[in-house]
Write a protein that binds this DNA or RNA. Structure first.
Lengths: 112, 112
DNA sequence: CACTTATTTGAATAGTCTTTCAACTGTTCA
DNA sequence: TGAACAGTTGAAAGACTATTCAAATAAGTG
């Protein structure tokens, strides 16, 4: 007899308690955004105030192109948004969770 | 005259407000742990209960070797710990922040 | 309109990461 | 002791990622 309906084997029951694969995948994608030093810095800068691409490049001492590439990544994850102002584009945070998550992480890193 | 001591140029002042490079680097390293689906799943499993390597492999439907490699990464980040019990090694979460961060992220992912 | 400035984009390169496979260590048990 | 089991480790392969460079777009200015 093979455990008919009453109890659940522990592997099955563990699987049922996990978020579905789609959610886990999105979760990982989300955290990946914070998992690169350049992006982490960009997010912290924009947490302080909205900035133009060139300003970000100056602060981070990186090429404008590199910054722009990372902004595209962050934009596609809906974490930042860019608004055109004449020739320039001003970037700001596009998600309330960002501050919360950054604070969470900073607390952890500083405590450890 | 070049701005002698009174005001600060905006780039300099922005740099001063950011956490130092070391902190940012650690922060990114920390988030990177959550930024891979396999590791995210492992952390969620261990959030439910402590598990042996083989159990984890069964739940995730992955090779024991792959799971072991990721456990090493998580161990070196001090997020999980393994305790030998005879032939087997039982893994559990080694950091209180993990649950908090996972919840933060899950809330975000589900709301979006 | 030509010219400069701000930013984006695509291709290429160099580096990193995840998984697999095979070999190895350590433990139990007959 | 030796066979079986649980897990770790190192090397290798393949997939990804970040940055650079050069070229393209787009807006403002003389």
């Amino acid at each position: 007899m093979t455990n008919a309906g009453q109890t659940l084997d522990p592997i099955q029951s563990m699987r049922r308690m996990l978020p579905d694969d789609d959610t886990v995948y999105n979760l990982a994608e989300f955290f990946k955004m914070f998992g690169d030093p350049t992006r982490a810095k960009i997010l912290q800068c924009l947490h302080i105030r909205a900035l133009y691409v060139g300003e970000l490049a100056d602060v981070l001492e990186m090429s404008i192109s590199a910054v722009s590439h990372q902004l595209r990544v962050l934009r596609s994850a809906k974490l930042v948004k860019g608004v055109k102002e004449g020739k320039e584009v001003k970037y700001s945070l596009d998600d309330d969770h960002v501050n919360q998550i950054l604070d969470c992480g900073l607390t952890h890193v500083k405590e450890r």
